[in-house]
Computed example of a mutant assay.
Amino acid sequence: MRVKCVLCDKIEKIEDQSPLAKKLRNRPIHTYMCQPCHSRIKVRTEERKISGNFVTYRDSSQEETW
Score class of each variant (00 low, 15 high):
M1G: 07
M1E: 13
R2M: 15
R2Q: 15
R2F: 13
R2E: 15
R2K: 13
V3M: 07
V3R: 03
K4N: 05
C5E: 02
V6W: 07
L7A: 05
C8I: 08
C8R: 07
C8D: 14
C8F: 01
D9Y: 00
K10I: 11
K10Y: 04
K10H: 09
K10P: 01
E12Y: 14
E12M: 02
K13M: 00
K13H: 06
I14R: 08
I14L: 06
I14N: 12
E15P: 02
E15S: 11
E15L: 06
D16W: 08
Q17R: 13
Q17S: 15
Q17M: 13
S18R: 04
P19I: 03
P19T: 12
P19K: 07
L20G: 07
L20W: 00
A21G: 03
A21Q: 03
A21R: 01
A21I: 03
K22S: 04
K22Q: 12
K23C: 14
K23Q: 15
K23V: 10
K23F: 05
L24M: 09
L24Q: 02
R25C: 01
N26W: 04
N26K: 13
N26A: 12
P28K: 10
P28Q: 05
I29F: 12
H30Q: 11
H30D: 14
H30V: 08
H30T: 04
T31E: 14
T31Q: 15
Y32E: 02
Y32N: 02
Y32S: 01
Y32T: 01
M33D: 01
M33A: 06
M33C: 10
M33T: 14
M33N: 03
M33I: 10
C34S: 09
Q35P: 00
Q35R: 08
Q35W: 05
P36R: 13
P36C: 10
P36W: 11
P36G: 07
C37G: 05
C37W: 03
C37K: 01
H38R: 04
H38S: 11
H38Y: 14
H38N: 09
H38C: 06
H38K: 10
S39E: 15
S39N: 15
S39A: 10
R40E: 10
R40Q: 07
I41L: 14
I41G: 02
K42A: 12
K42F: 09
V43T: 13
R44Y: 09
R44C: 02
R44H: 14
T45G: 01
E46G: 03
E46N: 04
E46Y: 09
E46P: 00
E47K: 09
K49T: 09
I50L: 07
I50N: 11
I50C: 00
I50R: 15
I50Y: 10
S51G: 06
S51A: 13
S51E: 13
F54T: 06
F54K: 02
F54Y: 15
F54H: 15
F54G: 04
V55Y: 12
V55Q: 14
T56C: 06
Y57E: 09
R58K: 14
R58P: 00
R58Q: 09
D59E: 00
D59L: 03
D59K: 01
S60Y: 07
S60V: 05
S60K: 07
S61Q: 11
S61P: 00
S61G: 07
Q62V: 06
Q62A: 14
E63S: 08
E64K: 03
E64A: 08
E64S: 13
E64L: 00
T65G: 12
T65E: 15
T65R: 15
W66Y: 13
W66V: 05
W66K: 08
W66L: 15
W66T: 09
W66E: 15
